[in-house]
């Protein structure tokens, strides 16, 4: 029994094995002088910087600011994307009027808008949130629209023959059939959300993780710069894990998500 338990926890730890070894290697190379401290601080220095910045509240404040921007932008952009995706997926009339325009706008890289966004909004919160909204909107829109269009026609016909009400047809068949695709859009959008935020905060901001990194660069505080990068990685991973959890819960009917 004990042996089995041990094997189980080892199984759970396997994905973390490689990152851990890399950290050890990094630490060893730095302390042995193979990597200059002007190129890369040691992991321990990065952690120390994290502890120091947490102690004076600066770190929590900056994470909070970045998280708020990400959250607000995601909710607005994702909400609009979901709404328009549903609208165009369900009503061909709406699709005829709107889809072509949206597809055209989609081809503009949203980060190319940074100069004009700064002109419009300055370096305040609106600029960052606006960019996140644009970045998040398209993946959610496209995947929602595609999900609805690819719901099995046979199931919809069945629902009609069984005289389901319009609402039941929508909530039990169309939405649930489109959900796997919508969730793919969600995960993709979360990635775009962080990416947009990183760029926007590095280019123009007066608070947030990106600002923290840019500020540290001015004073050659390499440990803080690396800390900011690590933080982005962790926050991105966290968002993705949450999305995965959501997927596992909402798509629990799908054998793909069953544990053996």
């Amino acid at each position: 029994m004990k042996k089995k338990n041990w094997a189980k926890s080892y199984d759970k730890a396997t994905p973390w094995l490689l990152p851990f070894l890399l950290l050890v290697l990094w630490q060893w190379l730095s302390s042995a002088g193979w990597i200059s401290s002007k190129v890369l601080p040691t992991p321990i220095e990065v952690i120390a910087a994290g502890i120091q910045l947490s102690a004076n509240g600066e770190l929590a404040g900056n994470i909070g600011v970045s998280f708020t921007r990400a959250f607000i932008g995601f909710m607005i952009g994702g909400g609009i994307g979901l709404f328009l995706g549903l609208l165009n997926g369900i009503f061909p009339v709406a699709e005829r009027y709107l889809d072509a325009t949206i597809q055209m706008l989609r081809n503009i890289p949203h980060l190319a808008l940074i100069p004009i966004v700064i002109l419009w909004f300055g370096v305040g919160e609106e600029a960052k949130i606006f960019l996140v909204i644009i970045g998040v909107f398209f993946p959610i829109y496209i995947n929602t629209y595609h999900g609805i269009r690819s719901v099995d026609r046979g199931l919809i016909e069945m629902g009609k023959v069984y005289s389901l009400s319009k609402w039941k047809l929508f909530s039990k068949i169309i939405i649930k059939g489109a959900l796997p695709s919508i969730l793919v859009g969600l995960r993709y959008a979360l990635g775009v959300m962080w990416l947009t935020l990183i760029v926007a905060e590095t280019v123009a901001a007066s608070s947030g993780i990106g600002y923290m990194a840019m500020n540290a660069r001015e004073f050659m505080q390499l440990d803080i710069v690396v800390l900011a990068i690590v933080l982005y990685a962790l926050l991105g991973k966290l968002a993705d894990s949450l999305a995965k959890l959501l997927e596992r819960y909402l798509l629990k009917w799908n054998p793909v998500y069953w544990k053996k």
Binding site: L155, V161, Y162, L164, K172
Partner: peptide
């Protein structure tokens, strides 16, 4: 409205339980 069809493929909703699928027949 008085007719019910049984199709060649069962056309069950994979995301609903067996009971709910039968309930579809009564419009839930």
């Amino acid at each position: 409205q008085t007719a019910r069809i049984m199709f060649q493929d069962a056309r069950l909703l994979p995301w609903e339980t067996v009971l709910t699928n039968v309930g579809i027949g009564i419009g839930l």
